[in-house]
């Protein structure tokens, strides 16, 4: 059972690093924001694997809706001459 958790943790770690790579290096800014949201999502599940349900719930409640909305709201407002 412990091995299973270790396997899933390693798997999530790799997925997180991949998503962070997208967030840093991709050309379109909207995709970078989406990838940052994905990093937050994966981190939330990982907190749960580390026996921290309080932290996982905070990250889920804040990272899923509020942060994404704020980022995309500002992006939508400045979209006029934003080309990268």
């Amino acid at each position: 059972m412990i091995d299973l958790m270790l396997l899933v943790t390693i798997f999530f770690a790799i997925a997180m690093i991949g998503a962070a790579l997208v967030a840093i290096r991709v050309k379109q800014i909207s995709i970078a924001m989406l990838a940052a949201g994905l990093v937050s999502l994966l981190a939330s599940v990982m907190f749960l694997f580390f026996a921290a349900p309080d932290v996982a719930m905070t990250e889920a409640a804040i990272g899923s809706g509020l942060t994404t909305f704020l980022f995309f709201f500002v992006l939508g407002r400045v979209r006029g001459d934003q080309r990268d």
Binding site: A20, A23, I24, I29, A32, M33, A36, V39, S40, A43, T67, F71, V74, L75, V78
Partner: peptide
């Protein structure tokens, strides 16, 4: 905006 995105990744 990209700097803020990168900052939130570091925060996580």
């Amino acid at each position: 905006l990209r700097m803020i995105v990168a900052f939130s990744v570091a925060n996580t």
